[in-house]
Computed example of a mutant assay.
Amino acid sequence: MWRRLATIADAAAIAHIYNQGIEDRVGTFETELRTEAMVASWFDGSHPIVVVEQEQDIIAYASTSSYRARPCYAGVGEFSVYVRRNWRGKGAGKEAMQHLLQACEAAGFWKLISRVFVENTASRGLLRSLGFREVGVYEKHGQLDGIWRDVVIVEYLFQANLSAASFGA
């Protein structure tokens, strides 16, 4: 497996993987499939996106987006990680997250956060193994297919970047 920063040219492959996650109802409340153009809009130059390849075929990705628009949250990113169906459970998600952590630390982020379905034990285990902390549970955070779902809030702190002046340096 090879990991690298993603480019807009990867948008179609990323959309395909994300759409599998949407269809499988494993990691998102989203139900509308994404297009290549929708994913291309994620590339803002500030929020790292990484991909994992096997023989030049993208098999996983991890991405960040802004947490809140307020300046005090500039160094906090929300993240997602998705793996192509036939590669789940084979380490591609871990590869993606390890590279995303490196890219976010280098970009000056001081924290990553996300929410994970409580029953998604594979993702929760992966994140714990990488040093993420489970902060708590949002009960009935949203409905998916008419069913209320709970999510676990996770966070990762970049100790080296915790000074207020570090973001964007």
Rank of each mutant, 00 (worst) to 15 (best):
G91W: 10
S46W: 09
G142M: 05
V151W: 09
E134W: 10
V135F: 09
V118F: 14
H47C: 14
R128M: 08
G77I: 02
Y82T: 05
R68D: 02
T35G: 10
G146S: 07
A60T: 05
A37E: 12
G142S: 13
E78F: 11
E95Y: 05
N86A: 11
L127S: 01
V135I: 11
L162A: 04
G108R: 00
H99Y: 15
V152Y: 12
E139P: 13
E155D: 11
L126D: 00
N86V: 06
H141T: 06
T64H: 09
R149S: 12
G75N: 09
T64P: 04
S65E: 07
G108M: 05
A106E: 12
I113M: 07
R84L: 07
F117Q: 01
D150N: 15
Q98K: 05
G75P: 07
P48M: 04
L162N: 13
V81D: 02
A160G: 14
F109C: 02
A92T: 02
D44Y: 10
L100E: 00
Q159C: 08
A37P: 05
E134K: 00
R70N: 04
V116D: 05
L162R: 03
E119H: 15
N86W: 08
L130E: 02
Y73H: 09
A165K: 01
G77S: 12
S41K: 11
L100D: 00
A62F: 09
S63P: 06
S41D: 13
P48V: 11
L130V: 04
F43K: 03
R128W: 14
A74Q: 03
V152K: 00
R149G: 12
E78G: 11
G125P: 01
N86Y: 01
H99S: 14
Y61N: 03
L144N: 02
E36P: 07
S129D: 07
Q54N: 12
I147Q: 14
A106Y: 00
Q54L: 15
K90P: 01
V154C: 08
V152H: 05
V52R: 00
A160Q: 07
I49E: 01
F132P: 00
D150S: 04
V116M: 04
A62E: 03
W110D: 03
F132C: 03
A165N: 07
S46I: 15
F158T: 04
Y73W: 09
G142W: 14
Q98C: 06
L162G: 05
I49Y: 12
S166M: 10
V152M: 04
Y156K: 01
L157I: 14
F167W: 15
V152F: 10
A96Q: 06
V154R: 00
I59Q: 02
R70M: 07
M97G: 06
E105T: 13
R133V: 12
G136D: 05
G75L: 11
G45E: 07
F167Q: 00
E53S: 08
T35R: 12
N161C: 14
Q56A: 15
R124G: 08
V50A: 08
H99M: 10
D150Q: 14
S80I: 00
E119K: 06
A107I: 03
Y61L: 09
E36G: 11
G142L: 06
E119V: 07
L101H: 04
S129V: 11
A106I: 00
R128H: 13
